[in-house]
Computed example of a mutant assay.
Amino acid sequence: MNVPSRARCVLRFRSPDQPGILAGLTPLLTENGWDIREATIYGDPDTATFFTRMELASDRAKIADLPRQIAPAVAALQLDWEVHDIAEPMPVLIAVSKFNHCLVDLLHKVEIGALPIRIVSVVSNHEQERSRVEWHGIPYHHLPVDRTDKAAQERRFLEIIEESGAELTVLARYMQILSDNFAERLDGRCINIHHSFLPSFKGAKPYHQAKTRGVKLIGATAHYVTADLDEGPIIEQDVRRVTHATTADEMVAIGREVEASVLSRAVRWHAEHRILGNGNQTVVLI
């Protein structure tokens, strides 16, 4: 006997904050055969906006029917909503330069099932990670940067993203400044890891900047890429304590572990559709 596959999806939305939002939506879901497996909410008092993420499952309802089923609540409650099928892992492209710790961490976590993603391609301006990536059966694209025609390299980069079907691009210590056009094309679909606790120490060599300032905490920041360098909405951050005796090189070594863990959390939350924009900030529903 053929057993019908179980539909699994994430419904997330924002709406004007008001009483009765969940009370108006959940009966429609229940009546149409949806089981709410997880729900996280946040009401922002500053913007008077209500944010919701629900993980739904059903043996008899179809994801394609969900828009019609919740239409009365969408109209009555002014829901700005999205639905995402989570039956398959999200296709992700990774870009890397010479520092490979974030790439290695992502490869390992995918291999052990700790990340709900599928790495479909790796792009690099260097050749050194080719053998590692291809050992995992992943296409590797070497895109050296020609300083006289950087736009050509970016055009090919964007073509690879489209050809691979990647829904998210991850800059895993990809040490190139992207053009405004590139950033705009990937708005909300590109995550960068910056090796400092933003907004402090933007740009190059942040650990050396931190050493010069005598900081006692260093960190890493995962954020969405925008046209403004290191100014995109912050997703996740973490820190480690250092002392006056910690050298800049030691800070770099300490920072590698922080960068890898911060980036993998940000990638997982994006792949699980837990991140919603809220002006120049993010709401992460975990």
Rank of each mutant, 00 (worst) to 15 (best):
S200G: 15
S200N: 15
S200V: 11
F201Y: 12
F201V: 05
K202D: 09
G203Q: 11
G203C: 11
G203I: 01
A204G: 11
A204M: 13
A204S: 13
K205R: 10
P206I: 05
P206F: 03
P206C: 02
P206E: 00
Y207E: 12
Y207W: 06
H208Y: 13
H208W: 13
H208P: 04
H208D: 14
H208I: 13
Q209A: 12
A210P: 11
K211Q: 14
T212W: 10
T212G: 10
T212Q: 09
T212M: 15
R213Q: 13
R213S: 08
G214K: 12
G214N: 15
V215A: 04
V215Q: 06
K216P: 11
K216F: 13
K216A: 11
L217Y: 08
I218F: 07
G219C: 08
G219P: 08
A220M: 03
T221L: 07
T221Q: 11
T221I: 04
T221M: 03
A222E: 05
A222W: 01
H223C: 06
H223Q: 00
H223T: 07
Y224C: 01
Y224H: 05
V225S: 00
T226Q: 03
T226G: 02
T226M: 00
T226R: 07
A227H: 02
A227D: 12
D228V: 13
D228R: 08
L229S: 10
L229C: 08
L229F: 02
L229W: 07
D230N: 07
D230V: 03
E231D: 04
E231A: 09
E231T: 00
G232Y: 01
G232Q: 01
G232T: 09
G232F: 05
P233R: 06
P233T: 12
I235R: 05
I235Q: 01
I235Y: 05
I235C: 10
E236R: 01
E236L: 06
E236S: 12
Q237N: 09
Q237Y: 12
Q237C: 12
Q237D: 14
D238Q: 04
D238W: 02
D238F: 09
D238E: 12
D238Y: 04
V239K: 03
V239M: 15
V239P: 07
V239W: 09
V239G: 05
R240Q: 03
R240I: 00
R241H: 12
R241Q: 15
V242Q: 08
V242I: 15
T243K: 11
T243A: 14
T243P: 13
H244R: 09
A245I: 07
A245D: 15
A245V: 08
A245T: 12
T246F: 03
T246C: 11
T247H: 08
T247W: 01
A248P: 02
A248K: 01
A248Y: 00
A248C: 03
A248H: 02
D249H: 14
D249F: 04
E250S: 09
E250Q: 12
E250W: 02
M251F: 00
M251N: 10
V252P: 05
V252S: 10
A253S: 12
I254R: 02
G255T: 06
G255P: 06
R256Q: 14
R256T: 06
R256G: 15
E257Q: 14
V258T: 11
V258G: 04
E259C: 11
E259K: 05
A260C: 09
A260T: 00
A260H: 06
S261C: 14
S261M: 14
S261D: 15
V262P: 05
